[in-house]
Simulated assay, not measured.
Amino acid sequence: MGFTALRAGGPVMVPLLLLSIVVLAIGVERLRYWQRWGLSSTRQERLLTDSLAAIPAGASRQQRQSLELAQLELGMAQGEPVLEAATLIGPLLGLIGTVSGLMRVLAALGPDLTLPSGASVVGYSQVLVSTWLGLVVALIAAVLLRTNQGLRQWQRSRLELACLRAEAEAP
């Protein structure tokens, strides 16, 4: 896909390209986050249980546990609303670009809807590039979103189980 194909997509290609950059940036950030988190290690579980161990048993401990879990989950869910929006906005922007491109093609064909002499239909197919890009952006955003949500739910369950285990082992 060259510059002419991007130009054929029309002005809607600018927000589509910006959206794709945002989605990829969130994807890289989430990858780095989960690498730092250490999915296979119990480091986060130990940090959580150690911070809770310093608090005496009772209602305040339950509140602190809920607060700690909510703060951790907030970090795990970062970027999800943007990814969710991108799964919807990407294809819609692509369709807008395709419709405007088809309108230009129909105007170029004239009232008889015939190709100008020496013109090829191949060049007109480039109006679909915006739909293609919108769908690709939405697909990448959906994969990132579902992967992050799955990891977040898995880690939340592990942390809750660690809290329950620490509570049961507490004197």
Rank of each mutant, 00 (worst) to 15 (best):
A70Q: 11
L161R: 14
N148T: 15
S40P: 04
A86M: 02
R165A: 12
V12M: 08
S40I: 06
T87Y: 06
G75N: 01
T114K: 10
W34Y: 08
L16Y: 00
L19M: 05
C163G: 01
G123F: 05
Q153K: 12
D50N: 04
R7D: 14
V136L: 11
R156M: 07
A8Y: 02
V82F: 07
G94I: 02
Q62S: 11
Q63V: 12
V105P: 08
P11H: 07
V105F: 09
S41M: 02
I140E: 03
P91L: 03
G134C: 04
A8K: 04
G110L: 04
S130P: 07
Y33C: 03
G90A: 01
R30V: 00
G110I: 06
L109C: 05
A108Y: 06
S100M: 13
E169T: 03
R165V: 10
V136A: 10
A170Q: 11
P11K: 07
V136S: 10
R104D: 15
R104I: 12
A119P: 13
P56L: 08
L16M: 05
G110F: 03
G94D: 02
L16W: 00
L135E: 07
M76G: 02
Q44L: 08
A57R: 10
R152D: 02
P11F: 04
P171N: 09
M13G: 00
G10N: 10
E160T: 11
L88M: 15
